[in-house]
């Protein structure tokens, strides 16, 4: 359990750094790479989706905690694009979740095959 959490946490950090450096396109790319590398672990795509959503949530909430007007702006932005406030927040979570998950899923399909275990004599 703790290993899974650690894995998701580190993955979230990778998503956050990727997004910070390269923008939203980093999410499917990091997911793809993760899927390719960890394709043989348990539920790599799910972990990628959750980590990507967590990363974006953190990228939005950390500035708010430092005093930047992220939360008040969210209300304005949602009204500007004429969606309910919750829909904007939902999009901020669902989009990375789906792109991270789908990227990782694709990555697992592209991952090199694990060499077959030698047969017992």
């Amino acid at each position: 359990m703790s290993r899974t959490l650690l894995r998701v946490g580190l993955l979230a950090l990778a998503f956050a750094l990727g997004t910070y450096a390269f923008g939203w396109m980093a999410v499917p790319v990091v997911g793809l790479v993760w899927g390719a590398l960890a394709g043989h672990s348990r539920r790599p795509a799910l972990h990628a989706g959750v980590a990507a959503a967590a990363a974006w949530a953190a990228l939005l909430l950390v500035p708010a905690l430092t005093g930047l007007p992220t939360l008040t702006f969210a209300t304005r932005l949602a009204a500007a694009i004429q969606v309910p406030g919750w829909a904007l927040w939902l999009a901020e979570l669902v989009f990375p979740l789906l792109t991270g998950w789908a990227g990782a899923l694709l990555g697992t399909a592209l991952a090199p095959r694990r060499p077959a275990a030698p047969a017992a004599e």
């Binding site: 910070y20 923008g23 939203w24 939005l60 694009i81 999009a91 901020e92 989009f95």
Partner: peptide, 10 residues
């Protein structure tokens, strides 16, 4: 949509 909702660059 990506450029819009990107939490850092959007």
């Amino acid at each position: 949509l990506g450029a819009l909702i990107d939490p850092v660059h959007g």
